[in-house]
Design a protein around this nucleic acid. Structure first.
Lengths: 218, 218
DNA sequence: CCTCGATGTAAACACTTGCTGACTTGACGA
DNA sequence: TCGTCAAGTCAGCAAGTGTTTACATCGAGG
């Protein structure tokens, strides 16, 4: 199905984002790199590293396969680039200061619940996907652990707190919860969570996350 | 690494369970089938469907590769068999009646937190892994949705309840939370959750699950 | 003892995978 | 106009994939 192409370049059934597609008119290295990373992130996040082929990615990005190796050396290199970009974006977002725990939770839920055409949730999913490459996996784990500390901090944790261990654990359980929900909505598509609206999800999720994060503050 | 073998049969670094290994003394179809399913479930759950090769599975089970196709027709057939067995085991376990919500939660946490050498958590993880095969994926989704109803029932849901929708959603969010934690512990190995003890996890997890499931009863 | 079906083995097949090297195309300054 | 070089294309290789086919081996029944 849909894989009749051997070396072709057609968009396939998982096209690059519209704006990218419009701008692309041939020769622009930076644009090509971005298109590849964008397509790769979607594939890696939804299908997993191993199940994604470089030809799929190239087709999605509307770009020749060989350019992946030109710009990122290897499939693993491309994965690493995806990981780094996700890591960065997550970092800048989380660094915005927040007033209350509820505000932190609200923002976390936003990540989870965003419309499926935006690839916010996919960024989170990418953090779960192991590539088998040691280097990329190290980045992945580091990012996840960094994200844990950021969430804990946002929830009121100070690094001189006596039971830092328990607090980091709680923060990471909150992340685990979020990841689980994204997984069930995006990858394994299971009802009723998959097609639940943001409004329906917010209430219960807030309660669960509050149960995990509220004890951090005091 | 460790895949120097091409068609060999040695146990590799992910051997079948000891007892199976001891019993196996050659020609027993039923035993061979069971060994294959057992090995396959571990691989599929931890590495994913696509990343797992039939030769790995065969090596883990201490069995010739061709026997997978003899007994299960194809890799997908083996995956389906894994799914069915997991579905069955989950069913019989969950059908034991429980008194209070806290007891339900306690049992759910047991699934998540069980020692890593038991493959209880892997059964859960398997429910997240999509094979690309329509049939197996259908089984997977059905199992998850069935599990959702079972959990809701155990938490006090009656099918004539007016807001069934919201209740099933809460139950499934509880499952999502559990799956997220297992994922972080088993597949993406990230600290501190990965090496947290059962005792450390139980407290926070109970609070989170209670926030999700407690409103079901009333 | 020999036969025959069930069980297990080994080698190969057809196909996909990631990747490479030689090539063409386009833009731009001299 | 031409030379130059980055950007993009193309065909193909080597390794790995799931699967099949032909063969070996065991255990029981005639």
């Amino acid at each position: 199905m849909s894989s009749k192409t051997t070396t072709s370049t057609e968009p396939s059934d998982f096209p690059a984002d519209a704006d990218d597609e419009l701008i692309r008119s041939g020769r622009d290295a930076a644009l090509t790199r971005r298109a590849l990373v964008r397509a790769a992130r979607r594939r890696f996040a939804t299908d997993g590293y191993r199940a994604t082929t470089v030809r799929q990615i190239a087709a999605d990005a509307g770009v020749n396969v060989a350019l992946i190796n030109r710009y990122f050396v290897s499939k693993e290199g491309l994965f690493e680039a995806c990981m780094l970009r996700t890591s960065d974006e997550l970092d800048t977002r989380a660094s915005r200061p927040s007033k209350s725990i509820d505000e932190v939770i609200e923002r976390l839920i936003e990540h989870v619940v965003n419309a499926p055409d935006r690839d916010d949730p996919l960024q989170l999913l990418l953090l779960l996907r192991s590539s088998g490459d040691e280097n990329a996996d190290l980045i992945r784990r580091r990012t996840l652990e960094h994200f844990t500390r950021q969430l804990a901090t946002a929830a009121g944790w100070r690094s001189d707190d006596p039971d830092t261990e328990a607090i980091l654990l709680r923060a990471q359980l909150a992340i685990a919860t979020s990841l689980g929900v994204v997984m069930l909505r995006t990858s394994a598509v299971v009802e009723p969570v998959a097609s639940a609206s943001a409004h329906e999800l917010t209430g219960p999720l807030t309660q669960a996350l509050r149960a995990l994060l509220a004890p951090i503050g005091h």
